[in-house]
Design a protein around this nucleic acid. Structure first.
Lengths: 241, 241
DNA sequence: CGAACTATTGAAATAGCTCAACCGCGGTGG
DNA sequence: CCACCGCGGTTGAGCTATTTCAATAGTTCG
């Protein structure tokens, strides 16, 4: 059972949340953000491995990740699955599969995590007096489409080393936006999960890490990554530094 | 320059459009659809090869494809590109890249086509008295996300023959929804475009067509396809008929 | 009719996969 | 405390699906 935590009156709301600058309100006029306080009525605390929602479940809310990290995946009939995204704090999970009111994917916590629950009906309610909220949801969904197109680009037209380079650069950027170091971080996902996401086997991913390390591009210690030559990564994906 | 055609008063509106059952209004209550008449104020006629919109252009509208077919692609700096979707009549183009009000992709007509223009500001306007319109847009965007996740699944975890099988089945289904034959159709895209979309080379695609034909699964005549063994295709993608 | 695409087919090269062995680390229980 | 297990990661060797390069043919179109 999911652990729900009602958001107490004196607790953090969107308008006072530290994540505001990168989360749902990002880019909204401050005057409007102030009116979002009723948007999040509770939060969910997840333990590592727990599902935030599962394929086929009724969908009536979006989730703003506050702490931790989450992966989303498409489950296949034969038991296999394809990971479609890794989410960091401030990012919105659950934008896919509002078709027929059912989730089309499954979201699983990769470490202990906490997410704000944003009910769809509250979005509708609040957009009546916060006109920009609907635009915001559209913008977030649009960004999610663009994001998955980027992954499509990687899977469709990059070689293995480029996929990993693109992934590391993307992760670095997103972590930077959260205030972390651009060049040193801990990956929450296993080699297998990363391989699944990138359309490679776990062995290939492992070999790539070793090779990048041998070439002096990164320093690898299990999931602890230090990027020592950002330019080389950019060059790999054809972006002249 | 794009050819705009104002929609005359007596012309077809969403409420009377033949495509209504598969296009933007799909699933909306009939009473609401009746109020959508001001949603489309003009249409665009495109010649084969012409762009409906290009990467970086200002985005202020969605497009409902009325006739023809359109491909969307991500353009890379080095001149390469990744095709992210093929669109048929009734499908909505332009849902990606409402970020920063700019298109993140380019949409190109694969044959002479015509699209209804749905201005974003008209959507906002009309949703004031057609409450379900916002839901509808959300639903359509969500479907677009789910769609691209399906492609991700194909690119990430299927072998070449499965990708082509999945593609043919998907195309067949969509054409059926439009009232065409499920088993006999003309593909609007070249082997190269299909290969690009599926993350394969054009030669591999060509060989796969030849092989499927040799195995009695399809009959191929250039872009003219006849599926003779639908069950075999389903089996290929692991869906026991 | 010839030019320029578009598709097919073959042969050789290779990127990434499969199978398999091994290592290291963290927990667990005798 | 230490032996043992299991899991995640690394590395090697051989294999194979797909690509690359190349030659040929069919189709479209001015």
């Amino acid at each position: 059972m999911l652990k729900h935590i009602p958001v107490a009156a004196e607790s953090t709301h969107c308008s006072t949340c530290m994540m505001g600058s990168v989360c749902l309100p990002v880019g909204m006029p401050a005057s409007e953000v102030a009116k979002l306080d009723d948007l999040v009525k509770d939060r969910i605390r997840l333990q590592k491995g727990q599902a935030l929602f599962q394929h086929g479940e009724k969908l009536d809310a979006l989730f703003g990740l506050r702490t931790g990290s989450i992966k989303t995946q498409l489950d296949e009939a034969n038991g296999a699955h394809q990971i479609t995204g890794f989410f960091l704090p401030g990012e919105i999970v659950g934008l896919d599969g509002m078709i027929e009111g059912e989730h089309s994917s499954t979201a699983i916590a990769m470490e202990d995590s906490e997410a704000c629950v944003v009910k769809l009906q509250d979005i509708d309610e609040i957009s009546r007096y916060v006109p920009s909220l609907q635009h915001q949801v559209r913008r977030l969904m649009s960004r999610e489409i663009a994001r998955s197109h980027q992954v499509l680009l990687a899977l469709g037209s990059m070689r293995s080393e480029q996929r990993l380079a693109a992934f590391l650069l993307n992760l670095s950027q997103r972590l930077t936006a959260l205030g972390y170091s651009p060049s040193e971080f801990i990956m929450r996902m296993s080699r297998e999960e990363l391989g699944n996401y990138l359309g490679l086997t776990l062995e290939t991913v492992s070999r790539l890490f070793s090779r990048f390390a041998r070439e002096g591009i990164i320093i690898v210690n299990q999931r602890d990554i230090k990027i020592t030559d950002m330019a080389a990564l950019n060059e790999l994906i054809g972006k002249p530094c």
